[in-house]
Design a protein around this nucleic acid. Structure first.
Length: 303
DNA sequence: CGCGTTTGACCTGCGC
DNA sequence: GCGCAGGTCAAACGCG
C-alpha cells in the first residue's frame, strides 16, 4: 500500500483543505484499452465483475493494492463509519502494463481517427447495401475500439445521474446474475462519441455503477447555456430525500497527478473544473446534495 | 415536430 | 464451430 495517494477525501467533508458538504468516499476505476488491451480489459471487467460478484472476490481483487475492508464497505450499504471514512485513491491494475501516458493517449486518438475514417467509408460505399440492419463491417482482425474508461460507484436513488451533459439512451440489457438492467447512453452532441453505462449493483441496490467511455469533444451544454452555475442546480426531478454518495474512484498509479486531473476533467465535465478554490467552495456549498461529478474533480485539482 | 426512451434483433468477442 | 453474454442499432412509440 505504498501507492501514490493523490487524493484523499476527508471523512468529515474535507479534501486536502477543500470543504465537502458530503463526505463522499470515492474510488473510481479506470481502464485504458488500446492495442492488445487484454490486461487492462481484464482489470476493468474484473472490477465490474467483482462489483457484482461476491464480497470476498471483490476484496480479493483489490487486495493487492487496496485495503479490502475499506473497499468492501460500500457494498455493506455504507454502514458504520461511513464506508471509506477517508477515501484514498489507490493504485489499481497491479499487473497491468496499461499506462495513460500522453503518448499512449495520443496513439489512441490516432486509432480512433482511423476508426472514424473507416466508418465514413463504410457509410459511403455501403449506403446502397443497407439491407443489413446493424453493423458497419470492420477491418478484418481489427478489434473493436474501446476508449479509455472511467467508472465509479454512486450511492443514489436515481439511476441516471445528472452530470451536465445530455445523454441519449440507446440500449438496455439485462445483466447476468443481476435483477437490474444495464443502460447504455451516448452523448447527444454531434461528433462526440462519449458513452456511458449505468447499472445498479445487485448486492446493494442503492449503489449505481456508472462507467464513462471516451472523452467529450465539447463543452457541457449546460455550462455553455448557463454560464457555469446552471449545471449545478439540482434537477427538478430529484425525489425528495435524494441522496447520493460517490463511493469509489480509482485511477491507475501509472498516471501522475496532472494526468489524473486531466482525465477527471475530460471524462466527467471539463467545465466543472474550477481553478479557484474559493469558487469550488462556493459551488459545493451552494448545492450540497448534488453534482457528484463536480465533487470528484476538486480533489484532483488540488496540486 | 423534435427529441428521448423502449425493445427486439443483430453483431462481436470469447470461452469451451 | 457453437453458445453465451455484452454491446449496438433502429423502428416504434411516447411526451412536451
Amino acid at each position: 500500500m505504498s501507492g501514490d495517494h493523490f487524493g484523499r477525501v476527508g471523512g468529515g467533508g474535507c479534501v486536502d483543505g477543500f470543504p465537502f458538504v458530503n463526505d463522499y468516499s470515492t474510488l473510481l476505476s479506470h481502464s485504458d484499452q488500446h492495442g492488445d488491451f487484454h490486461g487492462v480489459d481484464e482489470s476493468f471487467f474484473g472490477f465490474s465483475d467483482y462489483l457484482l460478484g461476491s464480497a470476498d472476490a471483490y476484496g480479493q481483487l483489490i487486495d493487492a493494492s487496496v485495503d479490502a475492508d475499506a473497499f468492501r464497505a460500500p457494498a455493506s450499504g455504507g454502514g458504520g463509519d461511513k464506508m471509506i471514512g477517508g477515501t484514498t485513491v489507490l493504485p489499481v491494475t497491479p499487473n497491468s502494463s496499461a499506462s495513460w501516458s500522453s503518448t499512449e493517449a495520443a496513439g489512441e486518438e490516432k486509432e480512433e481517427e482511423e476508426a472514424v475514417v473507416v466508418a465514413k467509408e463504410d457509410l459511403e460505399d455501403g449506403s446502397a447495401d443497407k439491407s443489413k440492419k446493424v453493423n458497419k463491417p470492420r477491418k478484418k482482425g481489427e478489434k473493436r475500439k474501446r476508449e479509455a474508461r472511467f467508472a465509479f460507484m454512486t450511492k443514489s436513488e436515481v439511476d441516471h445521474l445528472e452530470d451536465g451533459y445530455r445523454w441519449r439512451k440507446y440500449g438496455q440489457k439485462a445483466v447476468k446474475h443481476s435483477p437490474y438492467p444495464r443502460s447504455y447512453y451516448r452523448c447527444t452532441t454531434q461528433k462526440c462519441s462519449v458513452k456511458k453505462r449505468v447499472e445498479r449493483s445487485f448486492e446493494d441496490p442503492t449503489i449505481v455503477i456508472t462507467t464513462y467511455e471516451g472523452q467529450h469533444t465539447h463543452q457541457s451544454p449546460a455550462t455553455v447555456r448557463g454560464a457555469g452555475s446552471h449545471i449545478l442546480a439540482p434537477p427538478p426531478a430529484l425525489p425528495s430525500g435524494f441522496h447520493q454518495e460517490l463511493l469509489m474512484h480509482q485511477l491507475p498509479d501509472v498516471l501522475n497527478n496532472n494526468q489524473q486531473q486531466q482525465m477527471m476533467r475530460e471524462f466527467v465535465n471539463p467545465n466543472m473544473y474550477l481553478p479557484s478554490p474559493l469558487q469550488q467552495q462556493q459551488q459545493q456549498l451552494q448545492f450540497p446534495d448534488y453534482g457528484l461529478l463536480q465533487d470528484i474533480v476538486p480533489p484532483f485539482s488540488t496540486n
